[in-house]
Computed example of a mutant assay.
Amino acid sequence: MQTGYYSSAAGMVTQFNRLDTIANNLANVNTNGYKEDNLIIGDFMRLYQQKRDELPNENNTKEAAKFLNRTMTKAPQVVDEYTNFSVGNLQKTSNPLDVALSRENLFFAVKTPEGVRLTRDGSFSLDDEGKLVTKQGYEVLGDDYFKSKEGISFSTVDSVIDIDKNGQIYTNVPGSVTLTQNKKLFIANVDNLRYLKKEGDNLYRLDDMKRLEISEESGAVNQGFLEKSNVNAVKMMTQLIETNRLVGMYQKAMDTQMNEMNRDAIEKIAKKV
């Protein structure tokens, strides 16, 4: 009986973790460039398939059967977590400083107090010094940052800002509509997205940022657009309802187990008396 109680409690804790993930996704449903997080819950079959070749007992024996029966009483648990990096919908804003990326393995590079970080949020603006910055005030970096150590700046006479599909920035010659080449956006190409680690402010980091590969000809930069969150609100609400119901089921199972334990204890005490 105690095994069932502890299994139900462990299952409830797993669902609480899932609730936290779903709530965070829903909270960021309107965050530009946000990527949905997901948990993988391991049931008995998943755990068994992973470990069946490592069983301590020979197959088709009583000992193996007992081992499997004990294993089946184990509660569901979080066995993995991952981020869905699929591209969100691109929303047209016609703002020349809004930029979206149409490939999932590309990121903008920005300078933070903790070092270089990556982001998918291309809602940029100019600060008082004419520097291109994010909503949080982080400098947006050019592809020559590791040499120049400088971000991207504009002068007060730059009335036209044009960004091509590869991130090359053009500004107008003062007093004319002729465009001249400015800096180029640092478009980082990440081969293995599982190496990315989420931080606050919609940022990502790699353990070694200097090993980032710059995408020179990405063809994925869209000026005047913003990438919206890829969170499916309807799916998240469905999962939220499902998870709440599972929590309720585990609660009932725990109550039943506790009531049975209390009844058994009372009956045993009564017999001794």
Score class of each variant (00 low, 15 high):
Gln2Val: 08
Tyr5Gln: 14
Ala9Tyr: 01
Ala10Phe: 02
Gly11Cys: 03
Asn17Gln: 11
Asn17Phe: 03
Asn17Trp: 03
Leu19Ala: 04
Asp20Glu: 03
Thr21Trp: 00
Asn30Lys: 00
Asn32Arg: 04
Tyr34Asn: 08
Leu39Pro: 05
Leu39Trp: 02
Leu39Thr: 01
Ile40Arg: 13
Ile41Val: 10
Gly42Ile: 00
Asp43Met: 10
Leu47Ser: 11
Tyr48Cys: 06
Arg52Gly: 07
Glu54Ser: 04
Glu54Cys: 01
Glu58Lys: 00
Asn59His: 00
Asn60Trp: 02
Ala64Tyr: 00
Thr73Pro: 07
Gln77Asp: 10
Gln77Val: 05
Asp80Ile: 00
Asp80Ala: 11
Asp80Glu: 06
Glu81Cys: 09
Val87Met: 13
Gln91Asn: 11
Thr93Ala: 06
Asn95Arg: 02
Val99Cys: 13
Ala109Asn: 09
Ala109Gln: 10
Lys111Met: 07
Pro113Val: 04
Val116Asp: 09
Val116His: 07
Arg117Trp: 01
Arg120Lys: 07
Asp121Val: 00
Asp121Lys: 04
Gly122Trp: 01
Phe124Arg: 04
Leu126Ile: 14
Asp127Thr: 14
Asp128Ile: 11
Asp128Phe: 11
Gly130Pro: 04
Lys131Ile: 02
Thr134Val: 10
Gln136Ser: 07
Glu139Cys: 10
Asp144Met: 09
Phe146Trp: 07
Glu150Ala: 08
Ile152Ala: 14
Ser155Asp: 15
Ser155Ile: 14
Val160His: 12
Ile161Ala: 13
Ile161Cys: 12
Asp162His: 08
Ile163Trp: 09
Ile163Ala: 12
Asp164Met: 11
Ile169Thr: 08
Tyr170Trp: 09
Thr171Tyr: 06
Val173Asp: 12
Val173Pro: 15
Thr178Arg: 14
Leu179Glu: 13
Gln181His: 09
Lys183Val: 06
Lys184Ser: 14
Asn189Arg: 06
Asn189Val: 05
Tyr195His: 11
Leu196Glu: 04
Gly200Gln: 02
Tyr204Gln: 13
Leu206Arg: 01
Lys210Arg: 10
Ile214Phe: 07
Glu217Met: 14
Glu217Arg: 15
Glu217Ile: 15
Gly219Ser: 14
Val221Leu: 00
Gln223Asn: 07
Gly224Asn: 03
Leu226His: 05
Leu226Pro: 04
Lys228Trp: 01
Ser229Val: 04
Asn232Val: 02
Asn232Arg: 06
Met237Gly: 11
Thr238Ala: 13
Ile241His: 07
Glu242Met: 13
Asn244Asp: 07
Val247Asp: 09
Gly248Arg: 03
Gln251Trp: 05
Met258Cys: 06
Arg263Val: 10
Ile266Gln: 15
Lys268Leu: 12
Lys271Gln: 14
